[in-house]
């Protein structure tokens, strides 16, 4: 057992693949942890009313939106072992789909959602097909570059605000009804999407598709030898993740009622990676936990000093340097997640 864990620590791999028995237990553990998080989130709005702190719901919505984005990144990063450094681009594309359509008077969330998913999926398909021709360091740098490409595209798109961003006329509607007008409605919609995304991705990763994806992560050559084409599976995962991040972008635009290229900056992509790794890669629930932890940590550090990023940076460096096998192992122990 100890040999296996040290093995895992090095590769940061998912235990489910190597040991089916322990894996199934761990799987149940993560599902339970996720259920717990969802329950806590579900009772948050009434609590916020009770303690008379409506801003709590706004913060929580924001956290949920980033949790969805981190969840989608986990499919690529944790299960597919593709270190994508341009994931914020999809988030931004989804947000811009809402803003641009709404500036033309189309505020129906279904139309916006379809356009957002189509745009981010298409961007993922094209950039993914090119990026996946490469491996390792190249892949990281290329996804980063494509993310920047999307960023600069929006910066120079002066018709839609350019660098300054674009303020929404109002939140999205459904069949002309302003259903998202209240913060609570948006919160529960976001939570619903989060739960659906978690359940969907969980089913996906436990399916044959997910096993091939993880097998590719473990040993691409062997997967090819037994007759799979890793490229098709990886690209599919990349497109699914991109589309889901696009949906998160739709929610983000509604939450902030504002979009700007800053949503797509590479620092944002870096933060998404930090969320996934902080919580634990390839566990899905880890991405959610990581998003919650990082955003709360940022809020908390910001209370102390305007230079809170310094603290975050120091923390990141220390975590990598002093936790065995990277952050995954250390944080898993720290948070006492059921897997260990």
């Amino acid at each position: 057992m100890s040999a296996r864990t040290s093995d895992l620590a090095i590769t940061g791999a998912v235990p489910d693949v190597a040991a089916p028995r322990g894996g199934r237990l761990a799987g149940r553990g993560t599902a339970l942890a996720a259920l717990l998080i969802f329950l806590v989130l579900a009772v948050l709005p009434p609590v916020a009313v009770a303690v008379n702190d409506p801003f709590l719901v706004v913060t929580a919505t924001r956290i949920i939106v980033f949790a969805i984005a981190a969840l989608s990144l986990d499919l690529v990063l944790g299960y597919g072992a593709m270190v994508s450094f341009g994931h914020a681009a999809f988030l931004g594309l989804g947000a811009y789909a809402v803003a641009i359509l709404s500036s033309h008077g189309i505020s129906d969330i279904l139309v916006q959602g379809v356009v957002a998913v189509a745009a981010s999926a298409l961007f993922a398909l094209v950039t993914g097909a090119i990026s996946l021709r490469t491996k390792g360091v190249y892949f990281i740098m290329i996804t980063l570059a494509f993310g920047q490409m999307a960023y600069f595209f929006m910066v120079s798109l002066s018709a839609y605000g350019g660098d300054d961003g674009l303020t929404l006329g109002g939140r999205s509607t459904l069949f002309g009804l302003p259903i998202l007008k209240s913060d609570f409605a948006l919160f529960y919609l976001s939570l619903g999407v989060l739960v659906l995304a978690f359940v969907g991705l969980r089913a996906l990763t436990l399916s044959r598709f997910g096993r091939v994806l993880r097998g590719t992560k473990e040993n691409p050559v062997r997967m090819q030898a037994i007759g799979f084409q890793p490229f098709a599976f990886q690209l599919t995962a990349y497109v699914i993740a991109g589309a889901l991040a696009g949906i998160a972008g739709v929610l983000l635009a509604n939450q902030a009622e504002f979009v700007s290229p800053a949503y797509m900056s590479w620092q944002r992509s870096g933060e998404l990676i930090v969320m996934v790794v902080l919580g634990g890669m390839g566990t899905l629930v880890g991405a959610i936990g990581g998003a919650i932890a990082l955003l709360l940590l940022e809020d908390w550090l910001a209370h102390f000093s305007e230079h809170w990023k310094l603290g975050l940076g120091v923390l990141l460096v220390l975590l990598v340097l002093f936790t065995r096998g990277g952050i995954v192992g250390g944080v898993a122990r720290l948070f006492g997640r059921p897997r260990s």
């Binding site: 450094f85 870096g270 990676i273 460096v317």
Partner: peptide, 14 residues
């Protein structure tokens, strides 16, 4: 691995 390097150097940028 590359991911650790990405995280640590990202932290260093901050």
């Amino acid at each position: 691995d590359h991911l650790d390097q990405v995280l640590a150097t990202f932290g260093l940028i901050l």
